[in-house]
């Protein structure tokens, strides 16, 4: 953590805008659509990361006694990669789960409404799995974490704007 929170946020936002679809975990490139939606996400990301950044200091301060208040993280179009600005959120949850071995969390994977429903169940599961893997790397016991994909079935917003879609592409920690 050598960068200030502010600089880190800026870098994250920039990286999202610039590298667009390059860091795909699913190995997919979506051509023009990827470029278009990532441009939109640049906007959404900046605001979100600033909010989460406030809590990130506490996230690394060892044991967590309360369930972290930020329980939703967002994803780029057609990607299941953890965006850097959400690592601190995941770290908080990892810390909480490690300090509470009895705690159990369901990772709900969601997608935006583009594409077919059953295929999106698969995409939502990929997102939730990538969070689970991140937590496992942090040392969280696998038996504490369960993955359920909702695909596009439970949208966070209505409408077909890129902003709405950005809100839909998420993993929710459900304790």
């Amino acid at each position: 953590m050598q960068f200030s929170t502010y600089a880190k946020t800026l870098a994250a936002a920039l990286s999202v805008v610039v590298i667009a679809g390059c860091s795909s975990g699913g190995g997919t490139q979506e051509g023009t659509d990827g470029g278009m939606s990532s441009g939109q996400q640049g906007t959404a990301t900046t605001g979100g990361a600033t909010g989460y950044g406030n809590g990130s200091g506490a996230g690394n301060a060892g044991a967590q006694n309360e369930i972290p208040s930020v329980r939703t993280i967002y994803f780029d179009f057609d990607h299941d990669t953890i965006r850097p600005e959400f690592e601190s959120v995941l770290n908080q949850h990892a810390a909480y789960l490690q300090s509470h071995p009895d705690a159990h969390v369901v990772l709900q994977g969601h997608t935006d409404p583009q594409g077919t429903r059953e295929y999106n169940l698969g995409l939502g599961e990929r997102r939730a799995n990538s969070v689970r893997q991140y937590l496992a790397v942090q040392g969280v016991n696998g038996s504490q974490v369960e993955v359920v994909s909702y695909g596009e079935e439970r949208p966070a917003s209505t409408g077909n704007s890129q902003e709405a879609y950005a809100q839909d592409r998420r993993v929710v920690f459900d304790y």
């Binding site: 699913g26 190995g27 997919t28 490139q29 594409g115 077919t116 059953e118 295929y119 698969g122």
Partner: peptide, 9 residues
């Protein structure tokens, strides 16, 4: 069936 083994469905 649908498969994304090629990268896209």
């Amino acid at each position: 069936y649908t498969s994304d083994q090629s990268g896209q469905p």
